[in-house]
């Protein structure tokens, strides 16, 4: 079975949305920060195995410009998305707040679509660091938080697959 779905990456500028997508899609990473203008659209096919069946999951990843102020444009970018990855930067003191704002914005547009949360840049802090506020926020959206590092690749694939499973409605 093949399924094609639109997935949005949301988060404040510089939290590493593009890096996460590029790590996932191209398995590459660069420290060189390039601001995203508008949307980078990628296509990536993954195989999701659930209950013995394999689903060819064609993801159209919309890596949306962070901090976009034009609400209507943002709504147009997000429109039709089947799920979102809300990204935050673990080194920021207001990480949870920025993630909440982005999650709320996604919910306004996409109502019931699932969202999973990526606390990124874990390579810069102690591995065991956990953000209680983000976990609390995630519970309102299904409870999935991944502590990722685009730099090392840690938890990146599992992040995208977790969302895929939520979209497909299959158990983890």
């Amino acid at each position: 079975m093949t399924v094609a779905k639109k997935i949005c990456m949301l988060g404040d500028p510089g939290v590493g949305k593009t890096s996460l997508v590029r790590r996932y899609v191209l398995d590459e990473f660069t420290d060189d920060y390039q601001t995203t203008l508008g949307v980078n659209v990628y296509k990536y096919e993954d195989e999701i195995v659930a209950e013995g069946a394999v689903t060819h999951f064609k993801q159209i990843l919309w890596d949306v410009e962070g901090g976009l102020q034009r609400e209507s444009l943002l709504a147009n970018y997000l429109g039709g998305a089947s799920g979102a990855i809300i990204v935050g930067d673990v080194t920021w003191s207001d990480c949870a707040e920025t993630m909440r704002a982005n999650a709320d914005r996604f919910r306004e547009t996409c109502l019931d679509s699932p969202a999973v949360f990526a606390v990124n840049k874990m390579d810069r802090v102690e591995k065991s660091r956990r953000l209680v506020d983000v976990e609390r926020l995630a519970r309102e959206f299904g409870g999935i938080v991944k502590y990722t590092s685009a730099a090392t690749g840690a938890e990146v694939t599992s992040l995208f697959r977790a969302l895929a499973r939520r979209i497909l409605g299959v158990a983890d």
Partner: peptide, 26 residues
Amino acid sequence: VGLEDELAAAAGATGKPFHLPNLNLT
């Protein structure tokens, strides 16, 4: 993908156009 609604709206009776700027595409 995901723009099915917009395609339908444009094709429909109202013929509503839709525009998205700044897409970095393959």
